[in-house]
């Protein structure tokens, strides 16, 4: 079945591409969305491999619930002060506090 193999390969390539974009995005909300795209494509892959039971579980938990949990956790976070630099050396200190010098 060459057509089935074509769909199979396309889904596998798309999983890798979506996983790459999940790391590559600087915006964390976009990163979460592409992570849920990975889960959705993984559900399609499970269905192609004839495990529809696992596909339903993956679509419900991976693409539905864990995305919602990530978004809830993200809403509890604060943005980094200066344009997304998260390392402690580059982050600007708060105006009230001064760093103690060693």
């Amino acid at each position: 079945m060459p057509q089935n193999d074509l769909v199979h390969g396309a889904v596998l390539v798309l999983i890798v591409v979506a996983g790459f974009f999940a790391i590559w995005f600087r915006d964390l909300l976009s990163s979460i969305i592409s992570l849920s795209a990975v889960s959705l494509l993984l559900a399609v892959e499970f269905y192609i491999l004839q495990a529809p039971d696992v596909a339903i579980a993956e679509a419900a938990i991976g693409a539905g619930l864990s995305t919602a949990i990530y978004i809830v956790a993200l809403r509890g976070c604060r943005k980094a002060p200066s344009g997304g630099s998260l390392s402690p050396e580059e982050a600007t200190p708060e105006p009230g506090k001064e760093e103690p010098k060693p």
Binding site: P52, D53, A55, I56, A57, A60, I61, G64, L65, A68
Partner: peptide, 20 residues
């Protein structure tokens, strides 16, 4: 295909959508 766990996870998405 599916059963108690899968269907329950799908129904729990109801609360997830409303919460988000």
């Amino acid at each position: 295909p599916g059963g108690g766990f899968q269907g329950g996870a799908v129904v729990a998405t109801f609360m997830a959508l409303l919460l988000v």
